[in-house]
Amino acid sequence: MASKFHRSILVTGGTANLGYQCTINLARRYPDYQIVIASRSDPDSSAESINRLLSQKNVKFLQLDLSSLAQVRSFAVEWEANQFPPIYSLVFNAALQFPGDVQYTDAGFEKTFAISHIGHALLFSLLRPHLADTARVVIVSSGTHDPAQKSGLPDAYYSSAEEIAHPKGDALKNNGRQRYATAKLTNVLYTYALHRRFEAINKKTGKHWTIAAFDPGLMPGTGLARDATGFERFLWLKVLPKIMPLLRLLFSPNVHTAEYSGQMLARLVTGSDEEIGSGKYYEENRQIKSSDASYDKDKQEDLWKWTVKTLAKNDSEMSLFDLKDLL
């Protein structure tokens, strides 16, 4: 049966905060698109809430746990079963921070990296055949990936994808926030690696696939600190949201509400090619330079090759995930 929607958009982590606000803007802008929000759970019935707010029926929730490769694969099967229209945009927003000791997924990957990068990379690889001929991928990174921004987090450090996924030796002692900053660096590395491949695919096939990375800024009050200590959560949820003007003055102007950053994130999906450059990094509505390390092509290719080799189950998937069927 033909869908009543023309295209679809997927937003991971779209049930709250940044992703939720982004989804409101996208659903309002594209009432004739199927907007899917995906998260581990939706206790506040976010999809229904957005539909009521906009008096529309184009937002749907699907369960997705990015820390589980099996569940990511199940999600892709469910996507096909729903027969959603071709994908106009993938918004990879979901992320978690684990401030304490190293935590691992069931598959043995460091959990911050697994959620921010590995799960999203597998999701892209499985859903890529469903991309419309004109499509845009947007990956939410963070200014914490760039030591030059002096975010207050330990500096991101990319050794190799394998060492980030399976830390050993001194790396096991790294602060959880350092692992978060590094995971956000991998988001930018992956963006640039995928952009080069999109350029080649577009030239060969006539498709128009673009990709951009986004720094939403510091957003006190969001769910990022859910695994922090009780006192840290109190500061993050109760104190800092009330002193945002002071934070902008003393810490950084890049401090925003989730509503504002959600609008800026949605802009990267809805903006024209003249407004949004592929393979670029954005803060608010401005294209800016990302970290020096993020432009290292050796690091980009190490991440790309490790990701494909790790996630592909067989030769057929290896070719699919490496985009060789289009290159």
Rank of each mutant, 00 (worst) to 15 (best):
S272A: 11
E259T: 13
F251G: 04
Y282I: 08
E162K: 11
R197D: 08
N202S: 07
I164V: 15
A161R: 00
S160A: 03
E274F: 05
N202G: 06
E284R: 04
N174E: 15
Y282T: 01
P167K: 07
Y180V: 05
A193V: 13
P245L: 03
L240N: 06
I211T: 05
G143H: 05
R226N: 05
K289S: 12
K150I: 05
S272Q: 07
T222S: 12
T210Y: 03
G271M: 02
R286S: 14
L235I: 10
A200R: 12
R267M: 10
K238G: 08
V188G: 02
P241I: 13
L153N: 12
H256F: 12
T210K: 06
Q149E: 15
Y180R: 04
E275K: 10
T205Q: 11
E284I: 02
Y158R: 01
L218D: 11
E162D: 12
P253Y: 00
K280G: 04
G152V: 11
P154K: 10
H195W: 12
L268I: 01
I243G: 08
L265N: 00
V188Q: 01
V188S: 02
Q178T: 06
E259V: 14
Y192S: 03
W236G: 06
Q178A: 10
D215N: 15
E199K: 15
T182V: 11
G221F: 09
V255R: 02
A156E: 12
A266K: 00
A156I: 07
G223T: 13
P241H: 08
I211G: 02
K203L: 08
K184N: 00
L172R: 11
S252D: 04
L240W: 13
T205Y: 09
V188A: 02
L249Y: 14
A171I: 10
N285S: 11
Y281D: 06
Q263D: 09
R267V: 01
A212W: 02
M219D: 04
L218M: 15
P154W: 08
K184Y: 00
T191G: 01
K289P: 06
G152S: 10
D227T: 12
N187I: 13
N187A: 11
T191L: 07
Q287I: 14
V255I: 11
L189A: 02
F231M: 06
F234D: 10
L247C: 11
D155L: 07
A225W: 13
D146V: 01
Y180W: 09
Y158W: 11
I211Y: 05
Y190E: 08
F214S: 01
K238N: 15
N174T: 13
W209F: 15
F198D: 10
A228T: 04
A161N: 00
M264G: 00
K173G: 10
T257Q: 13
A161H: 02
R248G: 07
Y281V: 09
G143R: 05
T222W: 02
F198G: 08
N187Q: 13
K289Y: 10
L250F: 15
Q178P: 01
R233D: 00
N285H: 08
T205K: 14
N285C: 07
D215Q: 09
D146T: 06
A171R: 15
P241G: 10
T182G: 05
D215P: 04
P245Y: 02
W209E: 09
A228Q: 04
R196K: 14
V188M: 03
F251W: 13
